[in-house]
Simulated scan of single mutants.
Amino acid sequence: MAPPTRGRPRSFDRDAALDKALRLFWRQGYEATSISDLTGELGIGAPSLYAAFGDKKQLFDETVTAYGARYGGFAARALAEEPTARAAVARTLREAAIEYTIPGQPGGCMVISAGINTTNAEVAARLERMRNANVDAFEQRIRADMAAGTLPAQTNAAALARYVGTVMQGMSQSARDGADRAELLTVAELALRAWDEPAAGG
């Protein structure tokens, strides 16, 4: 029997391996994903994993960055491209319903779900910062619309932005729990009705 090889396979595709690791963390979360899980998923030995990506934490950090670039940027695009905060929120929630339920892809949002129950303070803090950054971006856009007169001056920008973030987190968990696209699109429309209620300005 030939001795096991210690290096990476000659056909090793780092980008494809990164995507496999990303999806594994997305499905299982940071805490529940072991080095053994990762090497099994990527089809390489532990030394090769460390050589290519560093330790588990370094690999996770890289997958989070890749997730934002490949899968999670729809809210930022909506905020950049839509003419109003309301239009950006509508697009974001509708696209969330679609993105969170793509067949063959883990359900929900990796940034929302991957840090659940983790004991790694750095991982938890990074994901928390990313979630809050999204809320802050919505708040800034809402405040810009208030300044432009598109939204009433008495609008509670912080609460309204947090509402959007809360709905997205709920949609993400619901997708992981088996909610289908049609259900989440209905949730998005109900959330938009709440946005349009006069109470949104309270």
Rank of each mutant, 00 (worst) to 15 (best):
A69L: 09
T92F: 12
Y100Q: 09
E95K: 11
R91G: 05
A66D: 12
N132C: 12
P106Q: 09
A137D: 03
A80P: 04
R86F: 15
I116E: 07
N120Q: 04
R143D: 10
I98T: 07
A66R: 14
G107F: 01
A97Q: 02
A66W: 03
V135H: 03
E95T: 13
R126H: 06
P103W: 03
A85D: 06
R91A: 11
R143P: 06
M130I: 15
C109E: 11
A121F: 12
G108P: 06
Y67Q: 00
T92C: 03
P103Y: 01
R126M: 13
R77S: 14
I98A: 11
C109L: 04
S113N: 05
A87S: 15
E128W: 15
P103L: 02
V123L: 06
R126K: 14
L127I: 04
A87K: 14
E99N: 14
A75G: 08
G107Q: 02
A75V: 11
E128T: 15
V111Q: 07
I102L: 12
N120G: 01
R143T: 03
A66Q: 15
V111L: 13
T119D: 08
Y67T: 00
A78V: 09
Y67P: 01
T92I: 08
L93E: 02
I116Q: 09
V89A: 09
V123A: 00
A85V: 03
T119W: 10
E128H: 14
E99D: 13
N117Y: 15
Q140P: 00
G108L: 02
A80T: 00
P106A: 06
F138N: 04
V89M: 09
P83L: 12
I98W: 10
N134M: 10
R129V: 11
V111W: 05
A96R: 03
A69F: 01
G72N: 08
R91P: 06
I142M: 06
I142P: 06
V135I: 15
